[in-house]
Amino acid sequence: MNHPNIRELQKKAIEIRKDILKMLTLAGSGHTGGSLSIVEILVALYYHALKNDPNNPKWKERDYFLLSKGHGCPALYAVLAEKGYFNREDLWKLRKLGSMLQGHPQLGLPGIEISSGSLGQGLSIANGIALAARLDKSDIRVYCLLGDGETNEGQVWEAAMTAAHYKLDNVCAIIDFNKLQIDGFCCDVKDMGAYFDKWKNFGWETIETDGHDIKKLMNAFDKAKTIKGMPAVIIAHTIKGKGVSFVENKVEWHGIAPKKEEYERAMKELDEALGKI
């Protein structure tokens, strides 16, 4: 696939972070940490891995992207607006009455493939799409992004077994492996133990990567496409709150929005980062 150079995409990631913070600040609520951690994953998907057409969101041949960790939607909205799925001005109406940009994603907004927000449900839906595609002899792929805390949910593992049983090599899960959830570090809340082995033992090809390195993410997605006869999961090491020093790795930033002065500080940091690329 023909894609702009990595530096441009790194800049884009920072611009998207700026949009996310503006959206959240204007909304006055929302999930800052888990939105900032998935930016590069989304950029690698929407600017490299996914077959899609913003002018024709329902294009039959498109790949599907499902945001199972629905609370990370500010990041997805920002990327979709950047791609041209809808008007950028809509971003500033996040969470407001009458806005299509609901607090958690709702089917109907161009580019949104599923409603989500109740954690643990996306991967099953991905499997259904993948099985239907197989019946239709269609070669579309289905990507599903989950939080690591989200994988506490039993349904995720039910779905993991289903994908392996049906050898769904058209399914690619991505784990936003930021090691935090709401109550603290994942390992303290409920230690999931040998995480990579779990996925392996459930019959998945696991691909480990740096979730903030766009080039590595692209390679991971390329590799996932070559896996045959089994589903693939990309476990992407990320930092919750990535890009804003006082938000990074801070559990208390899970479900709050920046206040005005925090927003301004964050913008300054991001502008500086932009200058360094």
């Binding site: 493939e113 599923i114 643990g120 449900q121 996306g122 991967l123 099953s124 839906i125 991905a126 499997n127 259904g128 799409i129 993948a130 099985l131 239907a132 595609a133 239709d136 039993g154 349904q155 039910e158 779905a159 077994m161 289903t162």
Partner: peptide, 13 residues
């Protein structure tokens, strides 16, 4: 739970 989700995926297609 997985069955209902999978069914939803089929319906989306």
């Amino acid at each position: 739970q997985d069955m209902i989700g999978t069914a939803a995926g089929f319906a989306l297609m």
